[in-house]
Design a protein around this nucleic acid. Sequence first.
DNA 1: TGCTCCTGCAA
DNA 2: TATTGCAGGAGCA
Length: 919
Amino acid sequence: MNKRLVLIDGSSYLFRAFHALPPLSNAQGEPTGALFGVVNMLRAHLKDKPDYIAFVMDASGPTFRDELDPQYKANRPPMPDDLRAQIEPLMAIVQALGLPIIRESGVEADDVIGTLALQAAAGGVDVTVSTGDKDMAQLVRPGVGLVNTMSGSKLDSDEAVVAKFGVKPAQIIDYLSLVGDAVDNIPGVPKCGPKTAAKWLGEYATLDGVIANAGKISGKIGESLRATLPRLPLNYQLATIRTDVSLPERHDELAMRERDVEALRVLYARYGFNQALKELDGAAVPESAGAAMPKAPTGLRGFVAPPVIAGDIDPQLSRPGEYECVVDEKQLKTWADALAQASMFAFDTETDGLDPMQANLVGISLSTVAGKACYIPIGHVAAGEQQLALDTVIAALKPAFADPGKLKIAQNGKFDLHILHRHGLDVLPPLGDTLLESFVLDSSQRHDMDTQAKRLLGMDTIHYEDVTGKGAKQISFAQVALDVATNYAAEDADVTLRLHEVLSPKLAGEPKLDGVYRDIELPLVPVLARIERNGVLIDAAELRTQSAELSRRMLEAQQRATELAGRAINLDSPKQLGALLFDELKLPALVKTPGGAPSTNEEALEAIADQHELPRVILDYRGLAKLRSTYTEKLPEMINPRSGRVHTNYNQAGAATGRLSSNDPNLQNIPIRTEEGRRIREAFVAPPGRVIVACDYSQIELRIMAHLSEDPALLRAFASGEDVHRATAAEVFGKALDAVSSNERRAAKAINFGLMYGMGAFGLARQLGVPRGEAQDYIGLYFSRYPGVRDYMERTRVQAREQGYVETVFGRRLYLPYIASRNQAQRAGAERAAINAPMQGTAADIIKRAMVAVDAWLQPQNDQGLMIMQVHDELVFECDGGFADTLRAEVGQRMAGAADLRVPLVVDSGSGANWEQAH
DNA sequence: TGCTCCTGCAA
DNA sequence: TATTGCAGGAGCA
């Protein structure tokens, strides 16, 4: 057996732990979050008892890379004080643990690790590099592997690197040179992302190969590559980890020293590491430290036990599961009995499609105990008599799924609720949902199960596409062989239960977040499921008529454009339009796209509309084409043939602020602002005898701003029921309410909205079409009239910077990783998000609460009224004609009562034969 | 067929 | 150089 060397990239972990963990502190108020993460990670490595180990940190001062490129890492924010303060304590703990520490100036930790890794591998030692830095993938080779204990991922073979990056370890430097690195300020090839880089390297093998063949790569991206050619060799040098650093110690001198128990005891106590302290006193840690959950905070006042973090993954969490395929009644009974005994269980469904309103049930998986799960095939095509009948399975499971004493846990349970409901099995509360647990804990993370399993359990799960294939060759899950299906599907239930066991205590440790999860998100799941299931009736004939009219007018515009251009032109192609307008016709290109090309967007075309007839024609065409392709043509296609209605999907974990989003189709962006766009809403209809009712919050986000800022003038305006934009205009322009002109009101409205998004004078000037100085004056006047708003915004920025997150009124949290960035644009963006999120997020919380309350009232009304849509500040219903007034009153009352703010919540409503009329 | 960009719809 | 989303078409390989 080879000896083993573990090289720990201390700098990368410290930085990542700092940003991944809450800003904890000990009883003395010293920051400890990052320290805690890194120390836990270290302890996990030590349990492995490697033969050699080193903790490698960046030294201070410049390195050879700074000499190569003065811009290198120029965008790096300075190290936050709270992070800097944790370095010395960390070094003290590492020292006391007995780990060799290496800090070498003039190079980075990467280079030290690269050198030691190759040296050791050459000497027949198995090397594990523990790092959070993907650049290190270039070191992977026989004898050298990477592990990231924070994400739980492992890169220990060519195949693993290829799976992650699409290129081999030997091509990683070439890959990084092309893609670049925003964090290190290495500019790659514009428009070349990971996929493109991997593709080129697949074709030409090396960066030199790509450079040599740059002439063959066509299109814009080819131009982009050729423009960047001179820079690439430097990128290659910067991305190359050195493996020839001369170091004071050889790899085989890096043995553990005796640890200094007394020093550790003092340090652990000081920083509040209770678990570590216990282990120190309790001698060896039991291998099956079964209690994977963090201990509740005991002793040591002021220290909050952090949630389980990736660096602290217990190996027990990722142990393989035992999975059973249930094909006869005896097995089924055994599992039904297990459900009957259990207080909670996880479940998952497999289907033959992704549309919850159409897909058929193919199988159900269950787990009552982490590590044990079953799969019950039902709709597999080749299973023959091997599988139980749907009715048998449903009958056996029904009692458990309806039991109010059992917690039923799923990942994105709304989908499974739909599928099971359509197959005769209703899932009744209480529910648990790992998607929502993860979303509430940190909305900026990814919440898909594979990612969560890796991050929280250290598990590499089987991916759906591993089982079904993908693209044209993809097969339905119904065609998957039973043994393969069992391994995949049972694992899903197993992992769901394991995730819940990790996430649930994390939430319990954050009472406000737990409240958001339990009181807002979970109760909403069945409500959303009902809204989606209800669907909305679409008048397809009306849309077809509109489509024909739009087509006719588009053709006219197209013909006129051809005349004006003197040649054929594709009006749908920004590229062709740009060439025509700016190259051939020499019109001024006043706006640039984010990619740097001259833009043909509405603003750019409006700006040159007085110089040529064509821009106006293009604008007309665009407006028509948008309506036709996105709405009048698409919506009829989305009608479900079984129900005759359109069923959107609401994504409950989509928007970081807590808003819902809608897709397939998106019913939250149906036009309203233009006359012809608004007509689309006439096709959202009620069946005979029924009407559409729409209820929306009036100025909800501004009201929340008034509540949060407690600004007297703003509070007064809302309290007295004034038109708030008019009131703002009166304040800003120093006039009586009834003396405000429509233009002044328009300006005030722009200020009100702009401020909520963190807009500056530049943006307001552009919005209003006034000089920047004038816009600045408006903003100045605004803040002098509403000083509470100014103070609130400043408080929010400070809070975001200090805590790393902002909160809604109900305690929902949004983390802002870029809030302390030294990159001015990134930081400014994070500040704008920080200002907007509490308002947008609180509004989302409020309407979610309202939906739950409205649904509770509506459910017993026997379908006299159905909730059918949510559009951020609006709820839409379909109801019996005679029920409309009742519904408007009852809904309005519940929406207005969904929160108790310092200003009243006002709800407007209307009804009519279609959605347009209901407004 | 999948990726990337540009454009534009809503609150 | 105004937030949060979803989605269509073009262009490319």
